[in-house]
Amino acid sequence: MRVVIVEDQDDWRNTVADHLSQLGYEVKDMSTLAELDTLMQAGAPDILILDANLPDGNGLNHVARLRAAAPQMGIMMLTGRLRSQDRVHGLSAGADHYLTKPVKLAELVATLSALSRRLRLVEAAPPEDIAGWSYDPPARRLCSPAGRMIDVTEGESRLLSALVNSSHMPVSRNALIIALGESPDAYDPHRLDTMIHRLRLKLKGHGTPELQLRNVYGVGYMCITQVKILSRSAPTESEL
C-alpha cells in the first residue's frame, strides 16, 4: 500500500513516515503542495495524508481537485482547526477522514488501517460503473439519465455530496454525520439510516439505471453509480 505524507512539520512527518515504513507501507513524504502536484503527475498513491495548512497553500482547497484526479485514492486530512464547518468542507470535497491535531500516532495508524481495508474491499469487489447521472450541489438537484429532475433537501444534499465525491469508495458513518454538520458523539446513527432510506426511495422510479447507495457492513455507505458533478461550491478564504 503506497502512502504519501504532505506535512511541513519535519520532525513529526519523519516520525510518521518511519513508523509507517516499519509497518510495511511504502511511504513517500514531502512538505509542499508543489511537490505533491509533481508526484501526482507520475501517478497517485493509494492513500494521501494531507496537512490542511502548508507553506504554499491550503490543503482543503485542493481536496476536490485531488479527488477528481484520483477517484480511488484515499485522502486523510490533518488540521489544527476545530470548527465543524471545516470538517464539512473537507469531507464534502472528497476527503475520507479528517483528523484534528495534535494527532496521536496510534489514532493515525488505526485510521490509516481502516482506510486501507476499505480500499482493499473496493478492489476485491469492483463497483458497478454506470454513467448518465449528474448532480448540481448548489441547486440541490439531480438529473437522471432519462432527464428527470430530482430535488433533494439540504440534509440529503450534504449526504449526496459526501457520497458522490467519494464515488466507488465507502464513506464511514461518522464522516456522513459530520457532513450533516452534526457531532458523531451526540447524533443518533439511526437517523442517518432513516435519511439514507428516504433518499433511496426518492431515487427510485426515475429510469434505468438507478442511482444506487449501497450499505457497506461495519463501515457506512457507498455510491456505486458514477455521477457527474456539474458544479462545486469551494470554501471561501473567510470560511477557512
Rank of each mutant, 00 (worst) to 15 (best):
I5S: 02
E7T: 03
Q9T: 12
Q9S: 10
A17E: 06
L20S: 01
Q22V: 09
Q22G: 10
L23W: 00
L23C: 04
G24T: 05
E26H: 14
E26W: 05
K28R: 15
K28L: 12
D29C: 14
M30V: 05
S31R: 11
S31K: 13
S31H: 11
A34E: 15
A34L: 11
E35N: 11
L36W: 04
L36M: 10
T38M: 08
T38R: 12
T38A: 15
A42E: 13
A42K: 11
A42Q: 14
L50A: 06
L50S: 05
A52I: 08
L60A: 08
N61L: 12
R65S: 15
Q72D: 14
M73L: 10
M73E: 04
M77D: 06
G80H: 01
R83F: 03
Q85N: 10
Q85L: 11
D86L: 08
D86M: 09
R87H: 09
L91T: 06
L91E: 07
A93N: 13
L99W: 07
L99H: 04
P102D: 08
V103F: 01
L105C: 03
E107R: 07
L108A: 05
A110V: 02
S116D: 15
R118K: 09
E123G: 00
P127H: 01
D129Y: 09
D129F: 07
I130V: 14
W133M: 04
S134I: 02
D136S: 14
P138E: 09
A139S: 13
R141T: 12
L142P: 04
C143D: 01
C143H: 08
C143S: 13
P145Q: 10
G147V: 07
R148T: 14
R148W: 04
I150R: 09
D151K: 13
E154K: 13
E154W: 10
E154Q: 13
G155K: 11
G155P: 08
E156Y: 03
L159S: 04
L159D: 06
L160I: 09
S161E: 15
V164Q: 02
V164H: 02
V164M: 08
S166D: 13
S167T: 15
H168R: 10
H168D: 02
P170W: 03
V171A: 09
V171E: 05
R173L: 09
R173H: 04
R173I: 13
L180V: 06
L180D: 04
G181M: 02
E182T: 01
E182G: 00
P184N: 05
Y187N: 07
Y187H: 11
T194Y: 12
T194L: 14
T194G: 00
T194Q: 13
I196D: 05
L199V: 06
L199Y: 03
L199R: 02
K202Q: 13
L203Q: 06
K204E: 15
P209Q: 04
Q212S: 08
G218W: 07
Q226P: 00
I229V: 15
S231C: 10
S233W: 03
T236Y: 05
L240C: 05
